[in-house]
Nucleic acid binder design. Sequence first.
DNA 1: AAACTAGGCAACCAGAGTATTGCATATCCG
DNA 2: CGGATATGCAATACTCTGGTTGCCTAGTTT
Lengths: 115, 115
Amino acid sequence: MSKATSVSRRRTLAGSAPVFAALGDETRLALVARLSEGDAVSITQLTAGTDVTRQAITRHLEVLEDAGLVRGTRRGRERLWRLERAKLDIARRSLAQISDWWDEKLAALKLAVED
Amino acid sequence: MSKATSVSRRRTLAGSAPVFAALGDETRLALVARLSEGDAVSITQLTAGTDVTRQAITRHLEVLEDAGLVRGTRRGRERLWRLERAKLDIARRSLAQISDWWDEKLAALKLAVED
DNA sequence: AAACTAGGCAACCAGAGTATTGCATATCCG
DNA sequence: CGGATATGCAATACTCTGGTTGCCTAGTTT
């Protein structure tokens, strides 16, 4: 494999780290799971069922929002949060990419053995 | 959707957080990308091409190893690292899972509108 | 054996991240 | 209006992270 190829590979992943970092916390992952149910949910509702305070949840939601995984909108006195699908797909593609490279390498090895 | 269902959903994701956390760092993601080329690589080789010290890379590799994403084996005076595909696939499935739940919800919405 | 190369270990440090408490503000509802 | 509800803001405490430097040990090579 050429050096240029591996450089481009790393470039493909660049920028995905913040998304993974945002997902790398049990509480936030639970929030994402909850929001994947589809409905827009308020902070108070999201806090119920966790063992941390509302402020902590707010902070987690902000982290997810900064990563682009979630979006919050105000409705009256409450703030509703919903999942942002696009960034999730980017993360998916990043992992798929790595797996593909791996498969590619295995295929190359197989060919070499068969020669 | 039942409460039991959403609980099981969150359970599916539980345990994936450490893997995402490990991937949530540019340097580590680059290491994973490098290792996805397939070859087992030494710490010194992995350090070349980064702007941090060998010790820093060693720590990153340990983090990846704790997450089960990578495995190191000793060969003579050097330690060779290779990618561990299994955990990567678990992370992939976690993201796919969330996406699927989302799709499921959208489909349900579509049905409701068509009624 | 001597020199070189690869890595391990430990002390240390600055900054980011997680969570708390207390108080203020904005809405909603009877 | 007045109480209850939902959230925002701020100060603070503590731990975790990522990174460094210095020194030591273990294989390799000549």
